[in-house]
Amino acid sequence: MSTLENGTRRSPAIHAPGEREITFGQAIREAIAEEMARDESIFLIGEDVAAAGSVFKVLVGLLDDFGPDRVIDSPISEAGIAGIGVGAAITGMRPIVDIMFGDFTTLVMDQLINQAAKTHYMSGGKLKVPMVLRTTLGASRRSAAQHSQSLHALFSHIPGLKVAMPATPYDAKGLMKSAIRDDNPVVVFEDKMLYQEKGPVPEAEYTLPLGQADVKRTGEDITIVATSSMVYVALEAADKLDSIGISAELIDPRTTNPLDTETLVQSAQKTSRALVLDEGYRQYGVTGEIASVIADGAFYYLDAPVKRIGAMNVPVPFSPAMEDLTIPSSDYVVETAKALCG
């Protein structure tokens, strides 16, 4: 992982002098608070989101600011609160549904995939579902197989849903605000290991469009596409590659649906090599789609096959000795990149 500074890692977003730094968690809370203050139709519902401020303490203070009618502690009923989100969204509200762990999104599949994603289309464009479902991804908290998965590929597969997976506090705030304002169901995946990550976030209001990749680092020899916390793994790898004379460009798609194919393809056309890094299971993961987009769009420019790196195709084990083996490491990224550039 990248440089440790006062116990937190520094975000790779461009740092303007004098700009304040806040954590990823604070950025999420700021985005929600600003939007709730701006638009009374927004409410937040989930397990332990109000009195406890969520298990990761990301939402502390919102209950005081907006009251129990708009920050609602729900029973442990993931499908039920997702359904409430869909129905409230269709009838004029803009709900934020909080699903504590990404693993629990398996309980809301019908409401998201059969209901939220299809309502606008099935109604011939008459009904809208402006709803955000925020949840987590990411292993390495020693939480074992049901609290550690990165399941964003499941939702990225579905037409009608949008999927955001911010890596930095700056991206988290801008994407969350856009997700809340979007008239479609948007699933926002937050890596629970990033909540303490610090980075520059302007005081002034801003949003980031869904579907616009960010070049986190420019380079000439190889394109590394990385999502969410894998951006930090890629940055560390890029530093190591730099020391051996390989210049890596790092692209963060920021949203997997819609996917900014143009930026991905242009970068690969420039560098002639690409590898794709994501914490979802490698098999049928978003890396497959992204690699395919690059292979299609940059085929005549590529000097090597596009490589994919994902989590091992095993349930996430508990023991640290095993869990760490399942997550892509910067050393593995470096080895893969060297082989591609060899």
Partner: peptide
């Protein structure tokens, strides 16, 4: 769920 969300 949708009807209940409409109620909410």
């Amino acid at each position: 769920g949708i009807a209940t969300g409409a109620g909410m």
